[in-house]
Amino acid sequence: MAVPLIIPILTCIGGAVVGALSRQPEINRLKEQVHVLQTQVSRLQTTIQEQQRQIEELKIRVNTLKAWNFVEKRRALGITRGYLIMQYGFKEYVELTILQAKGQGISAEELRFFNAFNLMMTGSEIGEEDKQFVKIFISSRYRYQIENLIAMDDGAQSELVRKVEAA
């Protein structure tokens, strides 16, 4: 009675071990990436603060453009949204790097976003479909903030830096 149960259990354990081992080089690479982020915390902070400054400037531009200058106003609004998508995308990317380096599982969608964004950050060319996916993924996750032009506040920035330092 017990023998038929042992075989599937052993198969499952074996599968899990092989799966974990096959992911180890990837986890090591991500740990290295987190280490690089930790050594560059000041650059990370500068990057986020720079994004924040740009977004605030763009918001002022959107608000100062008059209603009759609507073509320019819509363009400024679009550019601001693009900056916000990048800022929240960057936040998500850093958080997913930390999660994966810790060996925690992420969803298939998160993994697709991470891979595409990682290529973007390294300056590699990615397909139009992946670019669209990155935009849709972030826009749906941070819809409220992007629609209302709300950038990451100081608290969220500090929290992100703290996560990197503690990883």
Partner: peptide
């Protein structure tokens, strides 16, 4: 209504790519 025209999408892409370039340069 939250609708976006082709020019809105172009502006969003422009903003995103500009921010991406700056982030890469900073890092």
């Amino acid at each position: 209504a939250g609708s976006s025209s082709a020019s809105d999408v172009d502006a969003e892409i422009e903003g995103f790519e500009e921010a991406l370039r700056k982030a890469r340069r900073n890092l």
